[in-house]
Amino acid sequence: MESKQTPLGYVSFSVFAWIVGLLIFFPIFWMVLTSFKTELEAVSIPPSFISFDWTLENYAEVQQRSNYFKFAMNSVILAVGSTLVGLVFAVTCAWAMAFNPTKRTKDALLWMLSTKMMPPVGVLVPIYLVFRDWGLLDTRFGLIMVLFLMNLPIMVWMLYTYFKEIPTDILEAARMDGATLPKEIIFVLLPMAVPGIASTMLLNIILAWNEAFWTLNLTTSDAAPLTAFIASYSSPEGLFWAKLSAASTLAVAPILVIGWFSQKQLVRGLTFGAVK
């Protein structure tokens, strides 16, 4: 591919890509920078870049004011829990759609995806009422269910595209070899789909980690994840940019690290199996 491009085209393309990349990265960079400033410097105009008094006091105060680890633990439980539950349903669903399709399979897939197009606030009241009546408010179990259901269409869609690339012959060979359906899925399909499953899981962990609408509306303290932790710093007492930045940095740090180390998987996953 590269050999076909003129050096000039290649260079300008790279420059463009870098600019886009930096633009996307800048807010995160700025957030991290701000978290090391004093509140005064954080709002000073013009803003200072490097030449300010680096301080850790925001982190110290954030840790003092609220229990970061409790929130972080909840985030981990919600993100991983909803992804694992989702995987069980998504794998079976995608198996059926990829290997035993009917005329309506494509429609069903699109319909599932279309549920993601509705703004979640549209179902907030009914879901809130159900949660209240069933005593699910502020429980991890309730949130895991909501997050899992919210992300299920994307999981099914991603796994479906991965499974489509697996030759049906191989599953049929397993059937001839006497594998029952669960064994066929566990010993043959899943090992072959490991890259797809890994990227599906990663993407869903990230989506669930960052999900703010439901986590903020359905929790107060017991099940509150890091999104609630951040939100507690944009408080009515006024905005404290530096502390908010410190809290946000703490909240995104784990997922950023995971994302960084699993870039390859993620890119594959986000291109939905288009890159082989």
Binding site: P167, D169, I170, E172, A173, A174, V188, P191, M192
Partner: peptide, 9 residues
């Protein structure tokens, strides 16, 4: 099978 259909993993 024509494609052999071996388990690649």
């Amino acid at each position: 099978f024509q494609s052999y259909a071996l388990y690649p993993h």
